[in-house]
Nucleic acid binder design. Sequence first.
DNA 1: GGGTAATGTGGAA
DNA 2: TCCACCTTACCCA
Length: 259
Amino acid sequence: MPEGHVVHRLARDLAADLGGRRLTVSSPQGRFTAEAARVDGTVLRHTEAYGKHLFVGLSSDDEIHVHLGMQGKWLRVADPARPALPQVRLRLATEAVAWDLIAPARCELLTEAAVEDLVRGLGPDPLRSDTDAEAAVAALRAAPGAIGAALLDQSVVSGVGNVFRNEALHAVGIAPKRPCRELSTSEARALWAELRRMMAQAVEDGRIVTVDATDRAAVPEAEARKVYKQQRCRDCGTPVVTSTVGGRTAYHCPREQPG
DNA sequence: GGGTAATGTGGAA
DNA sequence: TCCACCTTACCCA
């Protein structure tokens, strides 16, 4: 269940397994059958993540665009001879390995021009090296409404989901309901830097762990965050406050995130 | 075995 | 603001 770190990690892992390889493309579930037939036998040229969007570029000049939505996931299948489950929307296979896409919100073929249009509508992605930090800071300060809502708006910044917005705001001591226009430049800079740090760490970990731990992999999922879905703040023990911000449940520590 | 929430988004109301 | 979508995981019985 994917925020941007999952998509960036997938771009990397798919490229490692499938980059430069000729693909057998199929849609066992049937909702991508015509498109799969069109690109079956093409070579995977590159993969790219932008926000929560994944693009798989093929030698036919088609791009497969995948958005996982809330439930989508890719499963790596070590034995490509093993038939896919019937609910698999898309299988990308070589003779060595297969990747199966389950329950995506979107899976479609786009032209490169259509990809550019889509990406143009996305705000800066903290996980990309080609983003302008000062532009991101300006966009955050200029956004209408609360910072907790702006962080979920993919046209303001992209790739941030409900876990990162709550954990990053906590890390920099900003309450989710603070209006964007009230944020100082230094606050917005700290928030952007924290998003970049936290999300990059999550790409490496393959999960979101924001508590301090020597062995990050050993932290149980339910205890991996400081405020998100926590009863008490894992820094100071203060009861976590829940509210609705930007249409989703926000979590914050009233002591460390005043206002 | 059933019921529900879920790290998301877009369209209807 | 609500709801539908796609599926899984976890809780409860």
